[in-house]
């Protein structure tokens, strides 16, 4: 009898327990911290599902960057504790919400238990097609993201541009063009600066490494970009560097670099390989890596911009 099932059950109970805490906690910030812990554990669950690519994304984006975003918001709003969000819900609403939640969760459990056997899968087809458009990529997930379903990936990068603009657009009119508020305190602690100076270069190397191995092993532009973004944010927290002005030309170019290069490569498809978003067999791998490099840049810039928030007019 293996220990592994017990590990899985313990992990599952922990994840659900933290989720319950996130929902049930009285205190706003306690709930946020519960969610951050939950995100960490979720990365472990993904490893157990044989999804290291997703685990890496979850660790970097779902837990890391989202954690900083939520902790910042939770701490700022937590200062003005509950009471201003409106009256707490009545019993009828509680019963309704509980019944609906139970119904949906119960139906989902029932369905998951009767999912068809054998499960349908596109894995063999994806592997077969790897001889064609996804040529030479050992990591099937990268092949799916950049080749078979490249259109989704490109549009998702456009979504990121819109999200950044949406976050910026929340700011005040007179602040437009300025930089977002700094991420760190005015006089950063020595320990923060030291940590940033040590961590950021190592982290950048690791980020690029994870991007680079992504063609053949778990990793890729998303995960590498998210780590680079985190490192940039750490440097900004230590005030080694500042959030850029929202009208900085280089920032905007970097934000659109990924989708723009993707779009151009997609448009060039008919010339290269006879179809939009198709890549010629012989050059598929270099082209895909080329596109991914720009996506890495865009992600590394977009995530910190999303966390840094709208431009801030007040000069320090």
């Amino acid at each position: 009898m293996s220990v592994l099932p017990f590990l899985d059950v313990a992990l599952a109970l922990l994840v659900v327990g933290l989720a319950v805490w996130t929902i049930a906690a009285r205190d706003l910030f306690a709930s946020v911290v519960g969610y951050v812990a939950y995100g960490l554990l979720l990365a472990l669950v993904w490893v157990r599902l044989y999804a290291p690519d997703v685990a890496l994304t979850e660790a970097a984006v779902g837990s890391g960057v989202t954690g900083v975003l939520l902790i910042t918001a939770g701490k700022r709003l937590g200062a003005a504790r509950a009471g201003e969000a409106g009256p707490s819900p009545g019993l009828a609403l509680k019963l309704f919400a509980g019944a609906l939640a139970l119904l949906v969760a119960g139906a989902l459990v029932a369905i998951i238990l009767i999912l068809p056997d054998p499960a349908p899968s596109l894995a063999p087809q994806a592997a077969a097609a790897a001889d064609g458009p996804g040529a030479g990529l050992g990591n099937p997930i990268t092949a799916v993201l950049i080749s078979y379903r490249s259109f989704d990936t490109m549009l998702e990068k456009v979504v990121l541009i819109l999200a950044v603009l949406g976050v910026w657009s929340v700011g005040a009119d007179k602040a437009w063009g300025a930089a977002p508020a700094p991420l760190g305190r005015r006089n950063p602690y020595g320990a923060t600066v030291f940590l940033a100076q040590m961590l950021a270069p190592v982290g950048a190397v690791i980020g690029v490494h994870i991007f680079w191995v992504g063609a053949d092993a778990p990793g890729g532009a998303f995960q590498g970009g998210a780590l680079l973004a985190a490192m940039w944010m750490i440097a900004m927290m230590a005030r080694i560097t500042e959030p850029p002005r929202v009208d900085a030309r280089w920032l905007r170019l970097a934000l659109v670099a990924g989708p723009a290069v993707f779009l151009i490569a997609g448009l060039a498809g008919p010339l290269m390989a006879g179809s939009f978003f198709a890549f010629p067999h012989a050059f598929a791998k270099p082209i895909i890596l080329f596109i991914e490099a720009f996506m890495l840049l865009s992600i590394a810039v977009a995530l910190p911009a999303l966390v840094a928030g709208p431009p801030n007019g007040r000069s320090e």
Binding site: G64, L199, I234
Partner: peptide
């Protein structure tokens, strides 16, 4: 690599 990523972000929050 997942562990590496987590270690890198250990101090982030």
């Amino acid at each position: 690599d997942v562990a590496l990523g987590l270690a890198l972000l250990a101090a982030f929050a």
